[in-house]
Design a protein around this nucleic acid. Sequence first.
DNA 1: CAACGTTACGGCTGACGTAACAATT
DNA 2: AATTGTTACGTCAGCCGTAACGTTG
Lengths: 133, 133
Amino acid sequence: MELLHLRYFIAVAEAEHFGRAAEQLHISQSPLSRQIAQLEEEIGAKLFVASGRGVKLSPAGRSFLEGARATLARATRAVEDALEAAQGRIGTVVVGFEGGMAYSGLLPRGVQMFRARHPRVEVRLVPLPGSPT
Amino acid sequence: MELLHLRYFIAVAEAEHFGRAAEQLHISQSPLSRQIAQLEEEIGAKLFVASGRGVKLSPAGRSFLEGARATLARATRAVEDALEAAQGRIGTVVVGFEGGMAYSGLLPRGVQMFRARHPRVEVRLVPLPGSPT
DNA sequence: CAACGTTACGGCTGACGTAACAATT
DNA sequence: AATTGTTACGTCAGCCGTAACGTTG
């Protein structure tokens, strides 16, 4: 199973119609029908049932629609997060500090400002060895 | 991007070594290297950095590893849920009841037993039209 | 120079499109 | 009979393997 199958499946589920789904996907009905059949075989359950003109989701199909959407959304977010991590907008920064700094007020103030500006960056403070406290 | 790329990426991330990852995937290094390069190009960020013998994850790579694992896990669960839905073990069942049944004690007791046996099935109770309460 | 990752080239699986077929309204 | 989904068949993109090449410890 690949994301391709999930994209095809969602299109058919939303259109309730192979022809229109294929048109929206810019492919023809034939490969769409085959990919759905292959997906159903891999899952081990029918996802659609015939319904007059077009198709409806089976119970398994309704469940799988949720999962397919969630999977695609998670994949999209994974890419976005990776890009933001590359730009340093999310991730973790480790700040080593000498013991005295803890009391100066400068460090907490700076960290506070940084966190306000970059809420998705985790700031980890580690005391340097040989320092008090 | 396809799930294939995520599986390949996770293998390399865990092995920190293209050769061993390829061996584990039962392919050779060449296609593995290309798929990772293609993935990096699609994301728009380098996922690995050279590190002596082998590679390490870049910041973007660390972020993407979480997302890739979560995406694969979500896809797996989607299939499992679809199968269970096909067997009627999860999903929704709507129970229509005539007003008097609400007071007999039979209906609540039956629903309670059913829910205990099938905790992932949502039981929706709807009063039938023309009933009291 | 030894080990590792990347690029080049050829083979093959599999996804696609056109067209013929089946089935349902 | 018309519309919709499925199956048949040939084409082509894309993934894979072998091998040659760069690069780094």
